[in-house]
Design a protein around this nucleic acid. Structure first.
Lengths: 340, 340
DNA sequence: CCCCTTCATGGAAACGTTTCCATCACCCCC
DNA sequence: GGGGGTGATGGAAACGTTTCCATGAAGGGG
């Protein structure tokens, strides 16, 4: 019953009284096998508790039947959704997913890529943190790479699936401006990161609306709770005259909410708050937060699809842009006289 | 420069003018190789952009050097933390992690296990959803299985790492009772699931405190937003006299908060709310929610450690219990006259 | 000065698949 | 009735490693 070693294709062949080629055909579904033989093989396999070794098959086929997924952090709710999207798609296409978190560290990211290449994955999906040169090298050595949610500038050969961040920020900015706000604080991502698109969209939209941009109101923070909090606190304390905050990410939005509470500012009476990323807690806040939703699940799913079933469309031109949606809740109000 | 096919150990051996055994020794670090030879091999490998194939190695070694991780849902913040913990530990031990989500479906879970076994993973960590028999079979065929965060009854041979859920519920119950509450509503997990420990702890603690348990106040819901909301709404509408809600999970806590707001109940003036799982939004609520924290990261990390570096201690007796901590915030107050 | 260790190295046999090719037995149709 | 196709099958050669074993060379102690 409990066999000493796990059964191999040879054991099954012997037990069924056929050649190993026949067993292979039965399991891989290729070639033709008579019904009777198939039955005998299947019975023998069941008896021996045989499972084909992906290692053997992979060696022969020179691919592992899995893909790699690199995100900065699986704990971030948006990234978790993205992971879920990739898992869903990969599962439906019969591939497994090796997941790892790079924590924004380019070196670690490179290590992970190295490992995935050694595993001979069929492709890599990444929310890239790091070094452009590393990724260029990776794209050369690995069968295929797709970026998700983020791109590295200067790598047009790597296809990407992104949310329309610029559009999201634009609609948020227009919404706040439409409520009459003129001194809008912008909490943005780390300087020098791809977060630049959002800041640019903010500036561009204000310019279009004829609202001057005050440099003092645009601040950037590393993507971490403490940095976000510091940035938000700095902004709100330095400029008591801001009437609205646009947070370019949910961590920054969280910081804005906490700082506003700390400073006893009423939302939205004293200050309006809106953010990118419609995460679960946006609705639980009091008041519920106005936010721009983008589907992490869709980004992940689409990236995986692009990687696995549309090799033709890869590497051709522009990144795929997925739509965003403004979800208006109660955290933004019309302009009132400045506080103080 | 760009080679036609990816280089193999043979190519490197030829280029360096040595035998393949020597190249293998250089890369696997076993055996002894003279400094000069090592240098030549490394140079040749660099030149050819060689990466050892995990497939070849795995075939020979009969293991893939990776582990499998099965969770109900990577999107749940607690489970995401658990995943992160596993990733951290696995990385430090040089293993990669194949992650998949079973979405509470026993059949899907069994499929995933099947796949992982075919991949010849070194072990499996699971937050089990499903069928006991399936897992018993899996434990027999797979090198090793560790349960995390949840156990299936009647499988003592499978080691487990759990949070002290009973202790957490007890401290929550004692805390609420200490504030004077007597009619405490309990929002629990799906009937017939492992969530039973929490409900039992609730009942036991009340009994110890001499507070009678009203069956009407104990409700259960599937782990999904709509079901949780329905359960919370049902409870609060049916029993206008509850003065406190103990939510046995963050989804249920979320539901309690939303329903309370919907019914215009002030927290904690009209109703106190406390929950298991100190997720990020607990602090963002207004008022911030009192909760019991348990570290998903630690559970994952510990489970991975148990799986990979303590084979001796596995399967010996009781599950590992990790401590929980009551985090008191502003959502619970002393008993007041019942509403209505 | 020779024998015995020790070290560096290469050859070759696994590891468990897939797949090309060859073989063989049919069967259909002219 | 025979030729040629067709369908089922097995043998054997990869695929890229690790590792056992054998072979030399070199060094040290008697």
């Amino acid at each position: 019953m409990a066999q000493r070693r796990t059964a191999t294709i040879k054991d099954v062949a012997a037990a069924a009284g056929v050649g190993i080629a026949t067993v292979s055909r039965v399991f891989s579904g290729t070639g033709s096998v008579s019904a009777g033989t198939r039955e005998r093989v299947l019975a023998a396999a069941r008896e021996l508790d045989y499972r084909p070794s992906a290692l053997g098959r992979g060696l022969k086929l020179r691919r592992s039947g899995g893909i790699g997924l690199i995100v900065p952090d699986v704990t971030d709710p948006f990234r978790a959704e993205l992971v879920a999207g990739v898992l869903t798609c990969a599962r439906s296409l019969g591939e497994h997913v090796i997941v790892d978190a790079a924590h924004g560290d380019a070196g670690r990211e490179a290590e992970i890529v190295e490992r995935l290449v050694e595993q001979r994955v069929d492709g890599i999906i990444a929310v890239p943190a790091g070094d452009r040169a590393d990724w260029r090298a990776a794209a050369r050595v690995c069968s295929s790479v797709v970026f998700a949610d983020r791109v590295l500038p200067g790598l047009p050969e790597i296809p990407a699936v992104l949310a329309d961040d610029a559009g999201g920020v634009r609609s948020l900015t227009e919404y706040l401006a439409g409520l009459g706000h003129r001194r809008i604080g912008f909490l943005g991502g780390a300087p020098g990161t791809p977060a630049g698109v959002r800041e640019r969209a903010f500036r561009d939209t204000l310019a279009q609306l004829g609202v001057p941009v005050e440099e003092d109101l645009v601040v950037a923070a590393r993507p971490a709770r403490d940095a976000a909090y510091a940035a938000a606190a700095g902004l709100l304390q330095r400029r008591a005259d801001v009437t609205a905050i646009l947070a370019a990410g949910h961590l920054l939005g969280e910081a804005a909410v906490l700082v506003a509470r700390e400073l006893d500012l009423r939302v939205p009476a004293d200050v309006s708050i809106a953010m990118m990323d419609d995460v679960a807690w946006a609705e639980l806040c009091d008041p519920p937060l106005t936010a721009v939703a983008r589907s992490g699940h869709d980004i992940g799913y689409r990236a995986c699809e692009l990687l696995l079933r549309e090799p033709a469309r890869r590497g051709r031109g522009e990144p795929v842009l997925l739509p965003t949606e403004l979800v208006v809740r109660g955290s933004c109000g019309p302009l009132r006289p400045a506080r103080r």
